[in-house]
Simulated scan of single mutants.
Amino acid sequence: MTDPKPAAGATGATTVLASGDHFIAPQLFVDALRTAAPGAELAFRTQTTPWPHTPFGPVGNVKEASGTEDELLEALGDAEIALVQMAPFTDRVIREAPNLKLIAVARGGPVNVDVEAATRAGIPVTFTPGRNAAAAAEFALGLMLAALRRIPASDAELKKGTWRGDYYAIENAGIELDGTTVGLVGYGAIGSIVARVLRAFGSRVLVADPYTDPAKAAADGVELVALDDLLRRSYVVSLHARVTPETRHMLHADNLKLLPQGAVLVNSARGELMDYAPLPALLESGHLGALALDVYDVEPPPANWPLHAAPNVITTPHLAGATRQTADRAAAITAAQAAAHLRGERPEYVVNPQTLDGGR
């Protein structure tokens, strides 16, 4: 929704839209930009979209967005800068906001922005790499431990009155991370934190990422390998890659069969990285020992989703980045991009840098 009384612009002030939600509040953007650009003459308009109380989804020609185009256009008014989280910057919104000169997005990827439309209009779009790296890394490790040691299942059964002492039977006993080979698919900000903690646990860490410098991998104490080799050798596999045309469904029916018998698969990155269709059969057969998911091919998954009935599945509702520190960090990084723009400098994280040489 649009907050009822957006601040009116003052003569000579730069008008800024702070479009937040119930995770990153508009005021967090306002405070962060005032800190990052002290002395700048700013007039703020604010908007609060309904996420996460209402799930995000496609809006116009963008995805993972919250609110409507009409609400966003009303909130924008004559704003030159937009600090946003989930608001839908569609082709239509960009065409109908002629004063807009910067869209600063508080997300690791600006999927709620039509970047091509912004580029045609000469509008730089910035993003916030690493905003949730610590949170997402910790969550992935939590999912690994939960799956390896049957924590959710034993908790649920004990609450029903069942004491599962038979989990001590050797055929049911868990697996330690200490000494276990763990494969990380993707070695960016999140994957590298996961690797560091896994090595502290005593795990052997394999990494599949064609963009990782072999010298960095060696210095970090991880082994850089091809994806198929990683799948063959890893008892635990965790995904930390971005979705691109090359990575979409990078795990599929054929290469999932390469996993060792009883392996654990964790996906807290993006649902599109894997084909979910073969997973129920792999779990039923025991070839896949456990599956831990925070992301899905359809979000939220439907009530008749086959994995709801499959054995040894842990599911959480896309919560890996849900920490208070992530919200603070995202607002600060986003504000820093806007502050650089206000000073006439080049923002650090721009997805369409060609707009910095021209623009409208």
Rank of each mutant, 00 (worst) to 15 (best):
L17A: 01
M274C: 09
L184R: 10
G122Y: 09
V237G: 03
R329D: 08
L265Q: 09
E80Q: 13
R95S: 14
P311I: 00
T49A: 15
S154E: 14
P55T: 07
G271Y: 04
L265F: 08
L206C: 12
P245Y: 10
E345K: 05
P245D: 12
L102V: 09
E116Q: 15
R150K: 14
I81H: 00
H53N: 13
S192N: 01
L148W: 02
D294V: 08
I170W: 09
R232M: 11
D294K: 07
F127V: 13
L198A: 07
G179N: 08
P38K: 00
A331D: 06
R346C: 04
I190T: 10
A153K: 03
E284M: 01
E71D: 15
A335H: 07
V237P: 01
T323E: 06
P124S: 12
E71R: 03
M86Q: 12
S203Y: 12
G183Y: 04
L148F: 07
T46Q: 14
A82R: 05
P214D: 11
A336N: 10
A37S: 04
A118Q: 06
M250N: 13
V222H: 02
A137W: 01
K216W: 02
G179C: 05
V237E: 00
R204H: 14
F127E: 13
H308R: 15
E284D: 09
A133M: 02
E71C: 02
D91E: 15
G161K: 11
D228E: 12
A79K: 00
P38Y: 00
L256H: 02
G321N: 03
E171F: 04
L28W: 02
G188L: 13
D328V: 13
L319R: 13
A121W: 01
F139M: 11
G344N: 08
G262V: 05
G108D: 10
L198G: 07
P4R: 00
A97K: 00
V266S: 06
A189F: 06
Y276M: 12
A147G: 07
A189W: 03
T315S: 13
I170K: 13
G202K: 11
L356N: 01
K101V: 00
E284F: 02
R95Y: 01
G9W: 01
A75H: 10
A146P: 06
P347H: 04
P302N: 09
V225Y: 03
A140I: 08
G358F: 04
K5I: 15
V30W: 04
L224M: 06
G142F: 14
T35D: 12
A253Q: 12
Q325F: 01
I170Q: 12
P26T: 02
S154I: 14
I333W: 04
